[in-house]
Amino acid sequence: MQVFAAFDHCTYLELAISKIEQEGIHKDRILAVPLKSNDDSVKLMDSIHHSDGISLFDTGAALATAFAVIGVSIGFKLEWGPVYWGLIGAGSGLLLGFAINLFYYTVIKKRKLKIGGSAKKTEVVLVIECREEVFSRVEKILKEHYALGIGYIK
């Protein structure tokens, strides 16, 4: 029987392995595989196959609308007229909103992740090969040592 468990990379993992060894399971029957963490860089442009929920154009669209209304209103008194000034206002609002979101997601959000320490730690997958009679004790040990998840194959 094979038992699979996921752990955070911490001392509880070491304690769980030593307890399992005390239960009579030899080191050759225990495998710990650390998982590499993915690059946490934010991809700002979505593709057709993946979207992360971050939009750079929502603030730009709102500002484009507001600036277009202001441009049209002021354009009645200016030389080029309301249409041109409305388009100039919409374009400048779109660019300003895009720049604000770009700055926010590339500078401020990254800094929050680094300062807050909320960057994901790597996890470790523990694979234990044991007999069915020992499974309940192994499962109990894994739960006592804060395994994130436990699975098994008979």
Rank of each mutant, 00 (worst) to 15 (best):
F7N: 04
C10H: 12
T11V: 11
Y12M: 12
Y12S: 13
L13H: 05
E14V: 14
L15D: 14
S18A: 14
I20K: 04
I20F: 00
Q22H: 10
E23F: 01
G24R: 04
I25M: 03
H26T: 13
K27Q: 05
K27R: 11
L31Y: 09
P34F: 02
S37Y: 05
S37Q: 11
S37C: 08
N38T: 10
D39H: 10
K43D: 12
K43E: 14
D46E: 15
S47C: 01
H49M: 09
H49L: 09
G53R: 04
I54C: 03
S55F: 09
D58V: 13
T59H: 06
L63K: 00
L63C: 02
A66Y: 07
A66N: 07
A66P: 01
A66I: 15
F67W: 06
V69M: 13
V69A: 15
G71A: 04
G71Y: 00
S73W: 09
S73L: 14
S73K: 01
S73N: 07
F76Q: 13
K77M: 09
L78Y: 05
W80Q: 10
W80F: 13
P82E: 10
P82I: 08
P82W: 15
V83D: 11
W85L: 08
W85M: 10
G86N: 12
G86F: 09
G86L: 10
L87Q: 08
L87N: 07
I88H: 00
I88R: 01
A90C: 10
G91Q: 00
S92N: 03
L95C: 11
L96C: 11
L96N: 05
A99L: 12
A99I: 09
N101E: 11
N101L: 06
F103N: 08
F103P: 00
Y105D: 01
T106C: 10
T106I: 10
V107L: 14
I108M: 14
K110S: 15
K110M: 13
K110C: 07
K110A: 13
K110W: 08
K112M: 15
K114M: 11
G116W: 07
G116M: 09
G117A: 07
G117W: 08
